[in-house]
């Protein structure tokens, strides 16, 4: 599919080190609007680091990242970008001292400055959309992992972001709960949300991904599509990785 509009995320020749460890080496990629991009790779390959650079949770040493036309250079831009980019974490990171609904309405009220009624209405709507409307006044500690992650997705969605980032969203879940979270993510993809996902869930990759990037040791090894990936990957390293995770 040809992207007529400008790409919403442009990552250009980005390098990053943590002390002496090179996490990213000259990585470039771009994500188009309404595109679902999945990044796969072994641990330590830099995929989470790359994801976290997109909303500047990590700064880059070399290169630049432009999100929705705004380069991530000064603090004002960064904050604005963060309101347009929602992130879902592996360990959920829900605020334990607030109920599920309060988790979702907090950012709306203090950043988007919405009224309490408006933000609560949106909160209830989103909880319904992720399938747990009855858990609005429940504290995160009382929810299962799958429910917590769905609340986390709703919390990120409450800010009406243009892009959603997912950092291994199902890696910390019991197998029975993975499906409920993936279903929510598939719905989001079907509705046309731009998503960048780091995951090992090959079912999701097959069902929703538009493009797949395989990373290893800090650089992109291969860029491919789901069909190509599962039938004939080009690089040897990709084949090795796939043979390990598809058992």
């Amino acid at each position: 599919m040809e992207q007529v509009k400008e790409d919403i995320i442009q990552i250009e020749h980005v390098s990053k080190s943590f002390g002496r460890v090179r996490a990213l080496t000259d990585v470039s990629l771009s994500v188009g609007r309404a595109e679902v991009v999945v990044i796969i790779g072994p641990s330590g390959s830099g995929k989470s680091t790359l994801l976290r650079c997109i909303n500047h949770l990590e700064g880059v040493d070399k290169g630049c990242i432009i999100v929705d036309g705004m380069p991530l250079t000064d603090a004002e831009n960064i904050n604005r970008v963060r309101t347009e980019v929602g992130m879902v974490f592996q360990l959920f990171n829900l605020f334990p001292h607030l109920t599920a609904l309060e988790n979702i309405t907090l950012a709306q009220r203090i950043i988007r400055k919405r009224s309490r009624e408006e933000s609560e209405r949106k909160g209830h709507e989103l909880l319904e959309r992720v399938g747990i409307p009855e858990k609005a006044d429940v504290y995160p500690v009382q929810l299962s992992g799958g429910q917590q992650q769905r609340v986390a997705i709703a919390r990120a969605m409450a800010m009406d972001p243009k892009i959603m980032l997912f950092d291994e969203p199902t890696s910390a879940l019991d197998p029975e709960m993975i499906k409920e979270v993936l279903d929510v993510m598939l719905d989001l993809a079907a509705e046309g949300m731009t998503m960048v996902v780091v995951s090992h869930e090959m079912g999701f990759v097959r069902a929703a991904a538009d493009r797949i990037f395989f990373m290893d040791e800090g650089s992109i090894v291969e860029e491919t599509t789901p069909d190509e990936l599962f039938t004939a990957p080009k690089e040897e390293r990709t084949r090795q990785f796939l043979s390990k995770i598809l058992h």
């Binding site: 909303n55 949770l57 904050n79 604005r80 963060r82 309101t83 980019v85 929602g86 992130m87 974490f89 360990l91 990171n93 829900l94 605020f95 907090l106 950012a107 203090i110 950043i111 986390a152 919390r155 990120a156 800010m159």
Partner: peptide, 21 residues
């Protein structure tokens, strides 16, 4: 650290994250 990261990724400033989260 994840709490601060979640708050900042929602767009909160450092002081907002401190105060609310």
């Amino acid at each position: 650290k994840g709490q601060m990261e979640a708050a900042r990724s929602l767009g909160m400033s450092y002081f907002q994250a401190m105060r609310w989260v």
